[in-house]
Simulated scan of single mutants.
Amino acid sequence: MKLFRMAVVLALVAGPAFAQDGAAPHINLMADGPPKTDDEKAADAAREKAYKETLKKIPDAKASNDPWGGMRADPPKQPAPKTSAVTSAPKKPKAGTAAN
């Protein structure tokens, strides 16, 4: 009985190793088709050329340098222009206050 148990354990351990051994024949299931004719080669070349020309027509997209641009709800605000003291009008005193 011990011999039978040891044979079963050995079979279970050796099973995965046997599957990786490569005992199965290496068969390529993708059959190579007949070679392309000159017309098919010319058509493939024309198709490839048209594809490359089409890719050249696509304009380059300008990438934004703002990594947090998608996180903001509104665009960044510009600072208010500074007014000079010469152009500002003098302040008027409030009504009801005495002027010195």
Rank of each mutant, 00 (worst) to 15 (best):
F4H: 03
R5T: 07
M6G: 08
A7R: 03
A7L: 10
V8M: 11
V9C: 00
V9T: 09
L12G: 08
A14V: 02
G15C: 07
P16N: 05
A17Q: 14
A17S: 04
A17L: 15
F18L: 05
D21Y: 13
D21C: 04
G22N: 02
A23V: 13
A23M: 10
A24P: 01
P25Q: 10
P25E: 13
P25D: 15
L29E: 02
L29W: 04
G33S: 08
G33F: 03
G33C: 02
P34G: 03
P35F: 03
P35Q: 05
K36S: 01
K36F: 07
K36W: 09
D39W: 05
A42W: 06
A43P: 00
A45K: 15
A45L: 13
A46N: 11
R47E: 13
E48S: 11
E48T: 06
A50M: 10
A50H: 03
K52V: 13
E53V: 01
L55W: 06
K57N: 10
I58W: 14
I58G: 08
D60Y: 06
D60P: 06
A61L: 11
A63P: 06
S64L: 01
N65W: 03
W68F: 15
W68K: 03
G69Y: 00
G70F: 03
M71V: 05
M71Y: 01
R72K: 12
D74M: 01
D74A: 05
P76Y: 01
P76I: 06
A80F: 04
A80Q: 08
K82M: 10
K82S: 07
T83H: 14
S84W: 08
S88R: 13
A89E: 10
A89K: 14
A89W: 02
P90A: 07
K91E: 08
K91F: 11
K91Q: 12
K92R: 06
K92L: 11
K92A: 14
P93K: 04
K94T: 00
G96P: 05
G96H: 02
T97M: 13
